[in-house]
Nucleic acid binder design. Structure first.
Lengths: 311, 311
DNA sequence: GTGAAAGCGCTAACAG
DNA sequence: CTGTTAGCGCTTTCAC
């Protein structure tokens, strides 16, 4: 998918009115290609800033995209009206293809885009879509089971979980993994040991506090994201609980720097950079062939447990 | 600057090949306008995610821009090559105008854009530019003086400061304000009471720790951003220092939620939302008139001290 | 080889 | 008031 770039413009700084270099609109009109991809984030801003997973994805995808001589623009859809604006933008042929990040249940964007024949790839397994779409995901369910099995093997008796939002596949899958491992071990999944978080640090702290109140006897907690786990560690600290002797904590890797700031935190590692590159590659592949013929597929990257606790 | 939007496309979900709605390239070609503005962020990703000031600006600007029936795309320039890519993108007429956020010293983007006749507005006072550019800023210097005077009036004896990066106007101005107030009170600005931070929470914590080591006798600190102030509070906590009785802390508002998470933190408030709206409005005004005739100007919003300490 | 011309899909201006 | 046409700036093709 190698495309000659427009000749570089020499900015004539001396004059007031001057050429804008090769006009992109005319170029696009005749070539039928914009050499630009959109990175759509369907999330409120307060959630976006502070979500290291998104940060990793944005960085990784835009790097990979630029390496292929394509431009990359970020489109934020924080609310319903923005959503429509993004939709218009994309369907008007402003971009050749789209990477969708942070998809929520009931988001109709993927179906709209695929229906419009716009090459699209998703980050994370989608739910309830009319048409198949290419996606890239980590094995969240497997990772959740990995973490839970580890806690069981440690001999932990009352293993709690702070889940992600249960309307997002990433939230559901990690919880399913927890359930898998519990059932495997012949243990019941107790409602009072499960709290639904929102992937924010504050949410993690709040849910941890609630769990401690409800179940003071818990001796382990699997938290569905490192961001929330950091909050949970603070809450445990405040409650005077010792980690990991008193309560073991396992997070789920979304903070590349977590081992630095939280040396005591064991996490389930997902290959964030590889996932970002895979997203870009799948999209670029679709841009190469003709849109209709591309067969949607998906990649699921394995996860691994990285022990950092000095227990 | 009211412009009729292209008629909404009805996505024909039934077929495989279908119209993409009104083609934007042709539209742009003939109208000479894209109805799109670029929001350029010149900052590394790890800095961007986690900087609430940027979050506020992105949200505020994009909202205001969309209200004017314009699209808004975010362009990230995290490194040198990205920088060039963004430059190409913008000078090729992909956008009608540009808002530049988080400018650093020596960034040639503003001069390039104005030289190319592209309507441009900056967030924050620029340094060392060849040509005048419209910008929007808060009165950082005044705010810094406000905070420092307050600490002096409280009877604090050894008032330290954690500055922002001293290669950024926002860093310099707040420090200048501190110096202003100190000189006003006939006090020397002592090197050992000043530490240069980087506007991150971790940086704030690190610099606070260094200051405490160097100057255990300090009884107040003015921190150039709330984000850093939160880090500083943690460091003080760890060192067993009591806030605000033992050590008074004043931050500089970049965290809209700070009063919620840090009820003890007094800060210098800057009107983030108004600043974002002003940025968008100035740009839109430039888009209306012809680019050459627009006279660059600037707005500087006043800051105010908001006491939240329960001291 | 080099140079001229057709035409991409829209909008605006103009003629009927 | 409605229908037709010129032409935006580039690329590609076709003729020379």
């Amino acid at each position: 998918v190698k495309s000659a770039l427009p000749r570089p413009m020499v900015a004539d700084v001396g004059h007031v009115e001057l050429d804008h270099g090769p006009d992109n609109a005319a170029r696009t009109l005749v070539k039928g290609r914009t050499d630009t991809v959109g990175l759509v984030i369907s999330e409120a801003h307060e959630r976006v800033f502070g979500d290291p997973f998104l940060a990793s994805m944005v960085r990784g995808v835009s790097r990979a995209v630029m390496r292929a001589d394509l431009q990359c623009v970020v489109l934020w859809a924080q609310g319903r009206s923005d959503h429509d604006a993004v939709e218009r933008f994309v369907t008007q042929g402003h971009v050749d293809g789209v990477v969708l990040l942070s998809l929520h249940e009931g988001d109709r964007m993927p179906d709209l885009l695929t229906a419009a024949g716009i090459p699209t790839v998703l980050s994370g397994r989608p739910m309830g879509l009319q048409r198949p779409v290419t996606y890239v995901d980590a094995d969240s369910r497997g990772g959740g089971a990995l973490a839970t099995r580890h806690l069981i093997a440690q001999g932990r008796r009352r293993i709690a979980m702070i889940t992600g939002p249960l309307e997002m596949p990433a939230g559901i899958d990690r919880f399913d993994g927890y359930c898998d491992a519990m059932r495997e071990a012949g243990r019941p999944v107790e409602r009072s040991l499960v709290a639904e978080g929102d992937f924010t640090e504050r949410g993690g702290a709040d849910q941890m506090a609630r769990l401690l109140e409800r179940e003071p006897g818990l001796d382990a907690v699997f938290v569905a994201s490192d961001t929330m786990a950091i909050g949970a560690l603070h809450a445990l600290d405040r409650a005077g609980r010792r980690v990991p002797d008193d309560v073991a904590v396992i997070g789920f890797d979304d903070v590349p720097m977590a081992e630095f700031t939280q040396p005591a935190l064991t996490t389930v590692r997902q290959p964030l950079d590889e996932m970002a590159v895979a997203l870009a590659e799948r999209l670029i592949a679709q841009l190469g062939g003709d849109a209709g013929a591309a067969v949607p597929d998906h990649v699921v990257f394995p996860t691994e447990l990285v022990e950092r606790a000095s227990a």
